[in-house]
């Protein structure tokens, strides 16, 4: 499926998705992050916790995504990245994301999020090593794990820290072997 077709598909599904109030969503997420900061008291732990929470969300969300988008297997990782950027982000967050800076082996790329709805209103306290939207990394990792792709996902640039764009680096580590299924097939 070509890139523009994915963008159209994303747009179509976005029309059909149920919406919630953006401020409600943003403030809920903000309250959660601040509560985590208060509870865990260590920013590094907060980053990890957000990623873990995202992972659980991703593991659940992937089925919703596949069911509503009707997307079939992707042939290569480049296609996967494009589907995430153009369909998944559009579908769940209503924003379009750009895929850029592929490496030579086509196993890692950057997702450029120009407009991150999680960070509306947010202003980080100075000198704090928090990746505020780290939950997104977790969601991507969890979702891809469910479709047999082990990836690493992390923030490289963050507008909250003064960068001009949010950049999420997405690195493919391995294809998870589907061993259980083969065993069942033999029986």
């Amino acid at each position: 499926m070509s890139a523009s077709a994915n963008a159209r598909l994303g747009e179509q599904i976005w029309q059909k998705m149920p919406k919630i109030n953006a401020e409600f969503f943003t403030l809920t997420y903000g309250a959660m992050v601040v509560q985590l900061m208060r509870d865990l008291e260590d920013v590094q732990l907060v980053n990890e916790k957000l990623e873990k929470m995202g992972h659980s969300i991703g593991c659940r969300l992937i089925d919703e995504f596949l069911a509503k988008s009707g997307i079939n297997n992707c042939n290569e990782f480049a296609e996967t990245a494009d589907v995430i950027a153009k369909v998944a982000f559009k579908m769940f967050l209503g924003v379009s994301v750009e895929v850029a800076s592929w490496n030579d082996e086509k196993t890692s790329c950057s997702l450029l999020v120009y407009d991150n709805p999680l960070t509306d209103f947010v202003e980080l306290p100075p000198n704090i090593n928090l990746y505020y939207s780290n939950v997104l990394c977790g969601v991507i990792r969890g979702a891809l794990e469910m479709v047999q792709l082990r990836v690493e996902c992390y923030f490289v640039r963050d507008t909250l820290r003064g960068d001009d764009v949010n950049e999420i680096r997405l690195e493919l580590k391995e294809h998870i072997k589907d061993e259980m299924a083969e065993e069942y097939r033999r029986e």
Partner: peptide, 16 residues
Amino acid sequence: LNPFAPLDGDKIKSAR
């Protein structure tokens, strides 16, 4: 609306 803004009457310290 910034979740990091203090609510208990602290001074406003915000570049924005």
